[in-house]
Design a protein around this nucleic acid. Sequence first.
DNA 1: GCCAACGTTGGC
DNA 2: GCCAACGTTGGC
Length: 137
Amino acid sequence: MRYWLFKSEPSTWSWADQLAKGAAGEEWDGVRNYQARNFMREMAVGDRGFFYHSQKAREIVGIVEVCAAAHPDSTTDDDRWDCVDIRAVEPLPHPVTLDTIKSDPALSDMVLVKNSRLSVQPVSEAEWRHICGLGGL
DNA sequence: GCCAACGTTGGC
DNA sequence: GCCAACGTTGGC
């Protein structure tokens, strides 16, 4: 299994919105960046991801699971853009903030730190375990 | 609200 | 194929 991080502006699509979709999940649509799209194409059903709130909140708030492999993004006719579906698994008891991540030497190589603009990104297994620990899981 | 970083577009 | 111009993202 691989691990990922999905970034969203809470004013556009929040963890609460994701939770409300329940087990059915929802398309992670609207991505118009090749790197992010390519990562989604690499995802397999069952892969886990962090749900990160960008902008004002700037923290990892929950765990999601990929529940459909990459398929055409229904929000565009442009066949360049694919997306996966994800569903909420559980919230982090203690959200892990960007400040915490940036000040933790174990997480200094995270894509979130090095390329803050990439909206879908891989997370290493070590990073995953470390953040789950910080988050109270 | 500002601005740096970065990706994309399009003219040449 | 290069690169300047432009648009967008997201931290601060």
